[in-house]
């Protein structure tokens, strides 16, 4: 029998603590054991977990094909124990279209940042939505290009400082922060469009319900379901995680209000 591990400085064998009746939270088995590459406090990790929990609870893992974007979540396929494809920057909805059209019985989701979805990939986003592709788009809006070191994103708020707007985003030069979710909601091809957040426990529970609903819509073949998650980028915003959450609540949420924008009904 293998010797039980002991927690350093506590002489208590681990298996005396970790007993089934003590477990109140378990990492979904669809998470791989790879260490997440996200900065501490980043919303990407929570969003990953919710998607994976929904897939696990629906029992559809063997039918899911996921698409990772180019952005901080470029390595999403390292963390999700699912069949995944890595897209070129902005092209995920086109890949998703190709997958779903040729594999209508599969569940297809794309996971995209704001630069990926609402700048370089705007055309793919709009047209996949307009065609009513039966896919689910998870959109992480952190108002910045996290991966490349904090440049302006299409969703960067007015006056917000980034490395390419060091004096603050000036809408006369750079346009206004784009509410792509509102745009997508107008297209008849979409069935469920919602905006969520994951920085408090209550919001996490809500966001999970929304993701579940989005996948249920896909199951019902109703068209494109779209879940925006307003998130934080501590590194890009140059804040501590706590500051970032406060800033998100005070600045992001007034401009990107939470809630459903469209819900055509599941039946």
């Amino acid at each position: 029998m293998a010797k039980s591990k002991v927690i350093p400085h506590h002489d208590v064998p681990l298996d005396q603590i970790i007993k089934p009746e003590n477990i109140i939270f378990k990492k979904t088995k669809l998470f791989t054991d790879n260490v997440l590459s996200y900065c501490p406090g980043c919303g990407h990790g929570v969003a990953h977990r919710l998607i994976l929990e929904v897939i696990e609870e629906m029992g559809i893992a063997d039918k899911v094909i996921g698409i990772a974007p180019v952005g901080c979540s470029v390595l999403a396929y390292e963390f999700m124990d699912l069949d995944m494809q890595e897209a070129a920057h902005g092209r995920a909805p086109a890949l998703a279209t190709g997958i779903k059209r040729t594999n209508p019985d599969k569940f297809v989701f794309s996971y995209q940042g704001d630069g990926d979805l609402a700048a370089i990939g705007t055309a793919e986003t709009i047209h996949a939505a307009n065609r009513g592709e039966n896919i689910t788009v998870i959109f992480i809006n952190n108002g910045i290009y996290g991966m490349t070191g904090g440049q302006m994103a299409p969703t960067t708020l007015e006056g917000m400082k980034t490395s390419t707007t060091p004096y603050g985003r000036d809408p006369r030069q750079m346009g206004h922060p784009i509410k792509i979710t509102e745009l997508v909601a107008q297209l008849p091809g979409t069935c469920y469009v919602t905006r969520q957040a994951v920085h408090t426990a209550a919001l996490v529970r809500k966001a999970k319900k929304a993701i579940r609903r989005a996948f249920e819509y896909q199951k019902a073949n109703k068209g494109l379901s779209f879940v925006e998650i307003v998130s934080n980028c501590n590194s890009g915003w140059k804040m501590t995680p706590v500051q970032a959450i406060k800033w998100l609540e005070e600045n992001m949420l007034p401009y990107y209000p939470l809630g459903d924008l469209k819900d055509v009904g599941l039946d």
């Binding site: 290009y145 440049q151 060091p166 004096y167």
Partner: peptide, 28 residues
């Protein structure tokens, strides 16, 4: 459009205020 390893080009330009120095247009 930002991409590593050359993002410093646009970042430098953005900080240098070319529109004031020469009137050059800078657009992401």
């Amino acid at each position: 459009y930002p991409i590593t390893p050359q993002s410093e080009v646009m970042e430098y330009l953005a900080a240098a205020k070319p529109e004031e120095r020469t009137g050059m247009v800078l657009l992401q």
